[in-house]
Nucleic acid binder design. Structure first.
Lengths: 200, 200, 200, 200
DNA sequence: GATGAATGAGTATTCATTCAT
DNA sequence: TATGAATGAATACTCATTCAT
């Protein structure tokens, strides 16, 4: 079979797995669920992945890489630090409307907790986290350097605040759904962060 | 047996359960784990709780009630909105030093995700969330009313930002441990929120 | 404590046990059920009976002895074989109206099956069965001897038919309840048995 | 795997289950017993049946259907009401010699009691009972119509007596085994029923 | 004697993984 | 490669019995 065929099949399995994990949670979703959802036999799945854990890990790997690459790509196309920062806020301001985002939140946070207890994963997740952190931090640092932002801004902490709000609010949003004014929160967050960035 | 005896036993079981859930997660921790950890027999545990789920729910109920009551109590003793807000920041600025807090985070967030999928729990958790939200919001609203804070402040969104950072950063902290500068983040958060609260 | 007190308590326990076994069956009813139903503590019950099995066996012992003694007593007061036979038919013709009888049937037949698998009980139950069989058989034999019944009657087989119908119909009745015309069956049985008994 | 293979496997499991239930009773026999007796793994059994209860119910369904179909088939081949009735008596006169019959009795009567307490099963069992009842009753009714039997015969009650003796005696036989003269009882029953059927 | 909390072996059921076809 | 039947260790929960008070 061609490599393409295999890649496709793997992708199909991962997609199904994601949907099953989103619906029930990783622990509760069974291989049988994935079999039914994907219409791929149990044996076939085990030809591509050696365990349920591996599916989980590979799935999250792929999703995170994809998401971070996409972000980097988009940011790379923008010029000013202002534009870049703006873009970051927009991404998360829009994203919440889809019910996909709620599913993604559940799966990602469950995986985050899961990684917390596995040293090999923990290392990976920490470096991933730092990538996200640096994404924001670098924008601020560059903005400071080129005079767009105030020198008083603490890029490290502001970045951690930004990602804290993103993850914390995603968690809250996953529970409250339409009751949670995700967009307003992001807008306000942008405002107060800019108060700091423009502080004299 | 006295009511006190029973209360004590229940508390003992809950404490053990919390520690087991913290170590392995609710789904992975087994009743056998709790038996071994608590030195209380399986049958005895089932005399006090009708299921593993009930242990989980009662455990979280108790912890949340306790925590929110404690907060309210402490805030009730303070006079100005400034003092109250300050207190809230301090609570979460200090709390992170204990490894207990990491455990608590893991268990609480896992329960949060768990509740996301059970309608009866979801209702409860939403009202709990609103209590926390209102705790912060009320301080701001009162501060605005009595002139301590700027009228430009959006109490609702600021509250959601505050709790977003608390929960999001707790999650990040649970992974990064001492690598995560929890205190600095809170300090910075306080600063930028105050920028808004003091805005003219 | 007086012997009377003890006897009373035992009787109370047995009564409760019977009602629990009737409701759920011996295997399904728990000691806890008996505790709740009797308002006698678990420990107390074990002071009077050494096991659930013992309760069952003693309960059935008592009920069977009582029932057979009552029958013998009533029959002893009657003179002719005709009267005696008539009485026997009447007893079972009336008995079915009470819902108590359905309960008794369930418990007795379950115990009968249970005894089937325990050699010590089996011996006892066989001798019990023979007592019932002889009760009917003796009436016929005496009736033949004193000329009330035809010499062609096979007392042994007629007795077995009688008790077969009683037990079989009780079983059917326990399922069909008011749909089962117990009384009609007994009446018809009496008729055809009398056809034989009066055969020339 | 072919449908035949599956049917076979199911039959194998049911056969094993029947033997285990016969030996120990449904409640006492464990899934582990069936596993050992059948040499089929626990998981495999659960691939074919969703619970121990389902095994029980499907087992009894099958056995009853089979038995009633066989009876109907055999009776259908016979012409006169006399021949048909004769056949029915013969079936139960012969059947008792096998130890299989004792096992069947135990399992069937335990299931009868069990159904007594489950409304869905009760409905089914009542209709099953009526099939058996009608089998006998119809023979009598036809015999009356075509002049083979006396008009004085009450087909309904005679049928209930017949099945009462069959079930009651089977129960007695299950306890007394070779001590119970099953054949003689049936012979005598036939005689007295015929006395009625030939009554002028 | 009475109480009811504690014990822990026993039970039905699930599910990740394997493997013959 | 794909299939899905088979495996069996693992798990939540039950309940007869014991025993400290």
């Amino acid at each position: 079979m061609s490599d393409d065929y295999k890649k496709n099949k793997k992708a199909l399995i991962l997609k199904s797995a994601f949907e099953c994990f989103a619906e029930k949670g990783f622990q509760v979703a069974t291989m049988e669920d994935i079999v039914k959802h994907s219409n791929i036999s149990k044996g076939a799945i085990y030809n591509y992945f050696s365990s349920k854990d591996e599916i989980y890990i590979e799935l999250m790997n792929e999703r995170t890489s994809e998401s971070i690459n996409k972000l980097r790509d988009e940011l790379g196309r923008l010029k000013t630090s202002n534009e870049k920062l703006e873009h970051l806020f927009n991404v998360y301001s829009d994203v919440n409307k889809t019910s996909d985002y709620v599913n993604a939140t559940r799966v990602h946070i469950e995986f985050w907790l899961y990684s917390t207890r596995k040293d090999d994963l923990r290392t990976i997740m920490i470096s991933r986290f730092n990538m996200y952190k640096d994404l924001f931090k670098t924008i601020i640092d560059e903005g400071i350097k080129n005079g767009e932002f105030s020198k008083k801004a603490n890029s490290e902490e502001l970045s951690l605040i930004f990602w804290g709000v993103i993850d914390g609010s995603s968690l809250h949003h996953a529970m409250l759904l339409e009751l949670f004014p995700f967009q307003n929160v992001i807008t306000e967050l942008k405002q107060i962060i800019y108060l700091k960035l423009k502080e004299k």
